[in-house]
């Protein structure tokens, strides 16, 4: 009798066990974040030789797009006060594509651009001469937050990548995804960049408002 009873209870319904295991597995699959190596690439300038004075670069003021960010995270863009960095990418695009006073080479470059980019050339005398001369300068204080600096740097890169992408008929995202591994994508990369050096200069921060 006792034997019979114990036999009846040995069978536990285990059909749903696998489902539970599955659920757990999916839960962990979804929640784990695998560290990714994505980011914004920046090439720092080479180290200055203390014995050699820094080169005196003569560049016209109109060829430099000045962005100053102070310790209160206020922006001064080309002498104009701004609260947020919004819309900065469009301004940088306009500045780079201004073609105020192109030389022969730059004129040839201008003629090779698609019409949508040519339409952006406003030819204002107070803005950049041509893309080869244009420099975007970002200057911060020591007290500026890294987050805002990265946002501004991101927008400057965005402006350039949109120009590159538009030249080869891609969106900025597609252009950035090009690896340069095979010939075709390498060609696209080079065609996009040609004549448009990615000139984003990061100035040494001021000693104000930080430690």
């Amino acid at each position: 009798m006792a034997r019979n009873k114990s036999r009846a209870t040995t069978e536990v319904n285990a059909g749903s066990m696998a489902d539970i295991a599955f659920l757990l597995l999916i839960f962990f699959l979804v929640t784990t974040t695998i560290a990714s190596d994505k980011g914004i690439l920046n090439i720092l300038p080479p180290k200055l030789d203390p014995n050699v004075p820094p080169p005196d670069i003569k560049k016209n003021e109109r060829n430099i797009f000045n962005i100053l960010i102070n310790a209160n995270d206020d922006l001064l863009v080309e002498g104009e006060y701004r609260r947020t960095a919004e819309g900065l990418d469009e301004d940088i695009k306009d500045f780079v594509l201004n073609f105020g006073a192109p030389d022969e080479e730059a004129q040839a470059l201008f003629n090779s651009l698609p019409a949508s980019l040519q339409a952006k050339a406003l030819r204002r005398p107070e803005s950049s001469d041509h893309p080869g001369e244009a420099v975007v300068s970002i200057k911060t204080n020591r007290g500026t937050s890294y987050e805002l600096y990265l946002e501004v740097f991101d927008l400057a890169k965005k402006a350039y990548f949109e120009i590159y992408g538009e030249r080869v008929g891609l969106t900025a995202d597609e252009y950035r995804a090009l690896t340069g591994d095979d010939e075709a994508s390498k060609l696209l990369l080079d065609r996009g960049k040609e004549g448009f050096p990615l000139a984003i200069s990061i100035a040494e921060p001021d000693k104000i408002g930080g430690n």
């Binding site: 980011g39 914004i40 920046n42 090439i43």
Partner: peptide, 15 residues
């Protein structure tokens, strides 16, 4: 990093 001549820097960030 400039002194060490490791000039390629990646500012890690999320999308």
């Amino acid at each position: 990093l400039r002194n060490a001549d490791a000039r390629r820097v990646l500012y890690a960030s999320t999308g």
